[in-house]
Design a protein around this nucleic acid. Sequence first.
DNA 1: AGTACATTGCGTCATAATAACACATTAAGC
DNA 2: GCTTAATGTGTTATTATGACGCAATGTACT
Lengths: 251, 251
Amino acid sequence: MAKGILENNENYQPGLSIDCVIFGFHDNQLKVLLIKTPYEDKWSLPGGFVPIDQDIDTAAVTVLNKRTGIEGIFLRQFATFGRVKRNDKHFENKILEHLKIPEKARKWFTQRFVTIGYYALVDFLKAIPQKENNKGSIEWIDHKEVPELILDHKEILDKALHTLRIELNLMPIGYNLLPEKFTMPELQKLYETILDKKLDRRNFLRKINNIGILNKLEEKKSNVAHKAPNLYVFDKDKYEEVLKNGLNQGW
Amino acid sequence: MAKGILENNENYQPGLSIDCVIFGFHDNQLKVLLIKTPYEDKWSLPGGFVPIDQDIDTAAVTVLNKRTGIEGIFLRQFATFGRVKRNDKHFENKILEHLKIPEKARKWFTQRFVTIGYYALVDFLKAIPQKENNKGSIEWIDHKEVPELILDHKEILDKALHTLRIELNLMPIGYNLLPEKFTMPELQKLYETILDKKLDRRNFLRKINNIGILNKLEEKKSNVAHKAPNLYVFDKDKYEEVLKNGLNQGW
DNA sequence: AGTACATTGCGTCATAATAACACATTAAGC
DNA sequence: GCTTAATGTGTTATTATGACGCAATGTACT
């Protein structure tokens, strides 16, 4: 919840919020950063409100930065959710009381909200979940084991993943999700996890190499079971270029 | 401008608007439906506000329906625009006076607005531009000859076209842009116009046919110069199926 | 040390998709 | 009837994709 919002409603854009679907990758699993709500047994996406003097993109960056502690990450708006009924039952009186929201601020919280969805791809190891005032809990959760979410947050999460899957065909990914040096099997696992589909090792290698954004290092990964795989890094310049121009332009 | 908004601000979601980029196709040109603003020599996208008790998608349908008179059209949300400065200079006093907006309503119009962009594909011949109270003017304008637009509407239009170009690879189009019976050269021209690129006749035919959404009719187009082209119709069932499942799934 | 096993690197082959191009057909206009 | 411009229907070379074979490498076990 945004700082000072209880005292200064008028400093925020009314009826508008930001919700972020923050993806990370760890242990061959796609993780999503979720927050446990203090007042009921559900979870929510990290979100916030939009300061009246701040661009919506900036407000999204603020949410992300506040929750992960990192900057300069991949962040993209993917949809805006505005069904009337999406929050009409949410902030009931008992919840407002539990949150100790003063009477005069309640109207602000119970108004109709439209929310703008952003999704982010971040480095799991660099992104340290940040609690709100050291209270509550925030955790990385396997996207296959997402618990019940408040409001329409499940729908938002699903839409984010769907968008990510489609955009896999339009842009390279991995730079923000993997450590600097990584192996081909790791990159492949990332794709397989996002797509929820097995890919052929050898065809994957060929296709990824054809994009031309990887540099193979001399070193191999050490301390691994079985044959040591090669290490790769992204060629940042080429990566950015492909990100900008897109790939796979059908027509 | 939405009905009753001057008297009943509180019936609308504050600081939120809808803008529609309505595309049509005629004379081998991609057209955009634009409105001449009465108070200055600029044009704007057709838009509206969001009734407090209406889904945003419904509000977008309302705008579209009001401006074209048609229903059941292809309409898709593509982005939300929320820079702080996007409308801070727009509704200056002289404009508010010109619009005869009463003093107490001015605060509503001068607040910060975030707008949700939708784009639509409609049949040029069926969509008859509808004026506001028979005042002002609304016209189909060639997308290559778009005049100066208010606010960030040019940016919104560009983003819509960019989205449409990308989505050409993910879905079939034409059903909402062409008459029921059409020729292959017409469909090709549509693609060429949207993409702003020449395509090879024979390769285009093969690729379109492989999608499997067209039925060739027995008849040919009559009263044409040169060789009479075949007529086609979309197979609605297959079209809808491909629309839903998408095409060209890279991975 | 030797062997089984899992995993990686690198390659082949058949098929499908794409790009570039040739030629015959049809109708209008002179 | 001839020219012209557009359409219908191919062919061929190149590239991308999908399915699969096999040798190399390191761990674990006997």
